[in-house]
């Protein structure tokens, strides 16, 4: 039995090294994830049942109230998007004057959350769109308030999204007010991120909105990421400590948006393209 254990340990160590260094094992991971898809659906059944029971006992009047407030919200958003269309056109005219490239509108696809990480120390979620819907590794995921994370694993019908709050995640941002650049790191808390290596003299104030800068080449630019909640200057430290709160509802959103930076790449079925 001993030699078999040694063999298993050797193979495991080789696998770990290969997986850390190269991405040759991605097809294996993708295959196993695809096999796991029905299990994921089954593990989600209890939550569907509790949701369904909750829905059965929702009163008609509260549903009507919800409908009214949603209608009001749609009206407000419609008005804002009317203004947005003319502003975008004006912006593009101005950029043409500057000989800069046009700002392309991003295409988005609505996706639904299937499951979340059972381990509270790992911040990832699983969504119900996969390779068959054109999802790719590195794609940005949003909710209605801001950036949620990026796709790290794609199987046939589902993909795994690493949240910006995970301690393996960092996102390049800039202050919306003045364009100061920084990198926002997650550290395992759903309600806070940290800006790394911010000079003590940088003009960042509490309440500033941080948007994605698009500098890493991974996230599209201009989506809200977080607001600054605390700036602390320690005379003994080289850099300021800046705590920020994510804009997105990382632990509440059920419906999410997958961003296709080039509108033409977005698959046609079930696509809702922002105007």
């Amino acid at each position: 039995m001993g030699y078999r254990l040694i063999l298993a340990v050797l193979v495991s160590v080789v696998l770990i090294v290969v997986d850390v260094r190269y991405d040759q094992l991605d097809p294996v991971r993708r295959g196993v994830s695809t096999v796991l898809t029905p299990f994921q659906w089954m593990s989600d059944v209890p939550r569907h049942i509790t949701d369904g029971i909750g829905f059965l006992f929702t009163s008609r009047s509260s549903l009507e109230d919800e409908l009214d407030s949603l209608k009001a919200k749609v009206l407000v958003l419609e008005r804002q998007s009317q203004k947005l269309a003319s502003t975008t056109a004006e912006l593009n005219r101005l950029r043409e004057l500057l000989n800069a490239s046009r700002v392309l509108d991003d295409g988005v696809v609505v996706t639904e959350l299937v499951s979340v990480s059972p381990d509270p120390n790992k911040h990832y979620i699983v969504i119900n769109k996969g390779r068959s819907s054109g999802v790719y590794v590195g794609q940005a995921v949003l909710d209605e308030y801001g950036l949620v994370g990026q796709v790290i694993d794609v199987s046939e019908f589902q993909s795994r999204v690493l949240l910006i709050s995970d301690d393996r995640h960092a996102v390049p941002v800039q202050v919306n007010r003045n364009g100061v650049r920084a990198v926002a790191y997650g550290f395992g808390s759903l309600s806070a991120l940290e800006l790394a290596n911010v000079p003590d003299t940088a003009d960042i104030q509490e309440g500033d909105l941080l948007v994605s800068s698009g500098l890493g080449g991974r996230f599209p630019s201009g989506y809200p990421v977080a607001t600054v909640t605390k700036v602390a200057h320690d005379p003994g430290a080289a850099f300021a400590t800046v705590k920020v709160t994510p804009q997105a509802n990382l632990n509440r959103s059920r419906l999410l948006l997958l961003v296709f930076p080039n509108k033409d790449d977005a698959p046609q079925s079930g696509v809702e393209v922002a105007q």
């Binding site: 495991s12 770990i16 997986d19 094992l25 994830s33 796991l36």
Partner: peptide
Amino acid sequence: VISGVYLG
């Protein structure tokens, strides 16, 4: 694969 750590 389930827990999303390195394979092995």
